[in-house]
């Protein structure tokens, strides 16, 4: 019963966070200079009466509560409004692109985790030279995502998955190494090692189960890291995903698309945080 209560409170808080993120996006765009500029006003084919009508329409849409109502109405209809630049329902724009981004993120996070785990496990068990062995990951963290992506294009090798995997892998490696180092030196593991337990058993029976809560938290961090890098990677590699759509919406002040993309990103972060938190069960039990 307590678990259900905790889940309900957390879900409610996440929902509030999502609404606040969407509201923040609307306010940010509403007060951006140039948001209300209408290119039709420069067109000579429109008469003075039509221009006056356009200005009146713009004046009506300046009110924040009007924008909020319009957004809420389009969300209730399920089409998330109409894109200002493409003139099609946002839901159609996001549908196909979300699939591309989800596949890209899933591949990258999986490869990043494999890379980080495969490197962190042996390096954490080393007695010396750990800093030197970790150097490639430290250097990777110091390269901006955009530079890494550009380098891939210039050298004609690798692609968006490689860039995102390297980024996620480098970020996760840093945490995994310190986590596994601590675990490797814990008294019960020293005892198990002294008794000659094989490394595989040590890893799968002792280290990974004990580090599971931190690994769950790290999974959330991986998602946030990959989502953050999604925009430059998709823009530079011209991947038709949500990140590229978000960038295009930002550049063209396309409010309905921007709100939907922000909400989607906040959803992924919020839900990932909700499901990966093991403290949820530990709090309730």
């Amino acid at each position: 019963m307590k678990l259900v209560g905790t889940i309900a409170v957390r879900a409610g808080r996440t929902l509030l966070l999502l609404l606040a993120a969407a509201l923040g996006t609307i306010l940010l765009v509403r007060f951006a200079p140039g948001y209300f500029s209408d290119p039709r006003e420069m067109d000579a084919k429109y008469s003075a009466v039509a221009r006056t009508e356009m200005q009146a329409e713009t004046g009506r849409s300046r009110l924040v509560n009007r924008i909020l109502l319009d957004e809420a109405e389009s969300w209730l209809k399920g089409d998330f409004g109409e894109s200002r630049q493409y003139h099609i329902p946002v839901v159609k724009l996001i549908g196909g692109r979300a699939r591309v981004s989800v596949i890209l993120l899933a591949k990258s996070i999986l490869m990043g985790w494999l890379l980080a785990l495969c490197a962190a496990l042996p390096i954490a068990s080393l007695r010396g030279g750990r800093v030197l062995c970790s150097l490639p990951f430290t250097v990777l963290l110091a390269i901006p995502t955009a530079a890494m992506a550009t380098a891939c294009i210039v050298s004609d090798s690798g692609g968006p998955v490689l860039v995102l995997s390297l980024l996620v892998g480098a970020r996760d490696f840093k945490f995994l190494r310190s986590l596994l180092e601590g675990a490797w030196r814990s008294p019960h593991l020293l005892q198990a090692r002294a008794q000659g337990l094989p490394t595989r058993a040590l890893v799968f029976q002792h280290i990974l189960p004990n580090a599971a809560p931190q690994l769950y938290a790290l999974a959330t961090l991986s998602i946030v890291t990959a989502l953050g890098a999604l925009v430059p990677v998709e823009v530079i590699f011209t991947v038709p995903g949500v990140g590229q759509l978000g960038w295009s919406a930002v550049m063209n002040r396309d409010l309905p698309v921007l709100v939907a993309v922000s909400f989607l990103m906040a959803c992924v972060v919020g839900v990932a945080g909700l499901f990966t938190s093991r403290s949820l069960t530990s709090e309730a039990v």
Binding site: L18, A21, L227, V231, R253, A266, V269
Partner: peptide, 25 residues
């Protein structure tokens, strides 16, 4: 804390990009 969580609910680079692009042209 809720206010800080709202900022943290969006990926940082996306938030930066959104805020920076909305500055005067």
């Amino acid at each position: 804390i809720f206010v800080s969580d709202v900022f943290l609910s969006l990926p940082w680079l996306f938030l930066l990009m959104m805020a920076r692009s909305l500055m005067p042209l």
